[in-house]
């Protein structure tokens, strides 16, 4: 190998400086993977492409969000792009990667669902720095850089479920199974539930809490253990839709159908069937489709220079056998 002479070193330095200068000139160098076509923050960027990063494509309700998002985007003449992580559990890192890719691909607007908001702050900030409109579908979380939030007020949803349960069992002793201790919508929903119960049903208390950590196969065992450890339980509240069948099974296996009530989220076809047969007392239904439509509306308003409120709520309703809507 030939030695590095002062002349060679000087030439190399010059070449590097030239390349750096030319790249800086065309704005190709910037933080992360920001695309060259990015518009500086502050300008009103024209929307041609809007991307929805679906947090749970495996869950039918999020499919509804995606469909309504696409229809609303097309109605505006925009190109909708829906991406989502693979697998059968929420994958935060995968979602963050998809947001990064969308930024790199030059999307004009992003609709994201930051399950753990703090995790998504850097990538949302990266999108905002690139002049991309960002709407988050995660109500109740602290501001993490998005321009507005659209979706379920999880605390209000929790309150609705407490209200629905309280109408049947005002002194319910409740066991709750949620996804994880850090899933913000679940934490907020539990807070809404307990706050409402404390105010309106002072005898209603949460006596047990546990987590599936994304593994629905464990739910029957967790509920079964919960009922053994707390024989005083009179209501189960599986927050994840995938745990509802397990809660109903645990109650059935104890021969306690009718004694122990089950309340849950989401009016999916399987949940409707068990409400009709009396195994499920009721569900808090979120405005899934509305969430997709209102997210697109929010981007439209942002692109027209409107300032939006921090949070745009969608409608939540508690359904039981008395008000079950037609199929």
């Amino acid at each position: 190998m030939s030695p590095i002479t002062p002349r060679r070193a000087a030439l190399a330095t010059l070449a590097i400086a030239a390349i750096t200068a030319s790249l800086s000139g065309c704005s190709a160098l910037s933080g992360g993977s920001v695309a060259a076509s990015s518009t500086p923050t502050g300008d009103l960027r024209e929307v041609k492409t809007i991307t929805y990063v679906n947090p749970a494509p495996f869950y039918p309700s999020f499919d509804d969000v995606g469909q309504c998002f696409e229809e609303a985007a097309k109605a505006n003449g925009w190109k909708p792009v829906e991406v989502g992580t693979a697998g059968s559990a929420v994958d935060n890192q995968g979602a963050i990667d998809l947001i990064s890719q969308a930024i790199a691909n030059g999307t004009d607007a992003l609709v994201v669902f930051p399950t753990i908001p703090e995790l998504f702050t850097p990538v949302i900030q990266q999108a905002r720095d690139a002049g991309i409109y960002v709407v988050a579908q995660n109500a109740g979380a602290p501001s993490i850089g998005q321009q507005t939030q659209v979706g379920t007020d999880s605390k209000q949803l929790g309150a609705l479920i407490a209200e629905g349960l309280g109408a049947t069992d005002p002194a319910a002793k409740v066991g709750i199974l949620s996804g994880s201790a850090s899933t913000t919508p679940h934490v907020d929903e539990i807070t809404g539930f307990t706050d409402y119960a404390a105010e309106h049903f002072p005898d209603m208390t949460v006596v047990a809490s546990d987590y599936t950590n994304g593994d629905p196969t464990k739910a029957p065992e967790l509920f079964s253990n919960m009922l053994t450890a707390h024989p005083e339980i009179t209501a189960l509240f599986p927050i994840e839709g995938t745990s509802v069948a397990a809660a109903i099974t645990a109650v059935k296996e104890r021969g306690a159908t009718g004694t122990i009530n089950v309340v849950a989220n989401d009016l999916t076809a399987d949940h409707r069937a068990v409400i009709e047969d009396g195994s499920l007392l009721g569900v808090g239904e979120q405005g899934w489709c509305e969430s997709g439509t209102k997210s697109v509306e929010a981007v439209k308003k942002l692109s027209e220079g409107e300032t939006l409120p921090d949070f745009i709520p969608t409608t939540s309703t508690f359904y039981d056998i008395s008000n079950l809507p037609a199929k």
């Binding site: 059968s88 196969t217 029957p220 069948a245 109903i248």
Partner: peptide, 16 residues
């Protein structure tokens, strides 16, 4: 499991 919980969940099993 489908027989036990009367539901066949596509997310059941998995790495867990």
């Amino acid at each position: 499991l489908a027989a036990r919980v009367a539901t066949a969940d596509p997310g059941a099993g998995g790495t867990g």
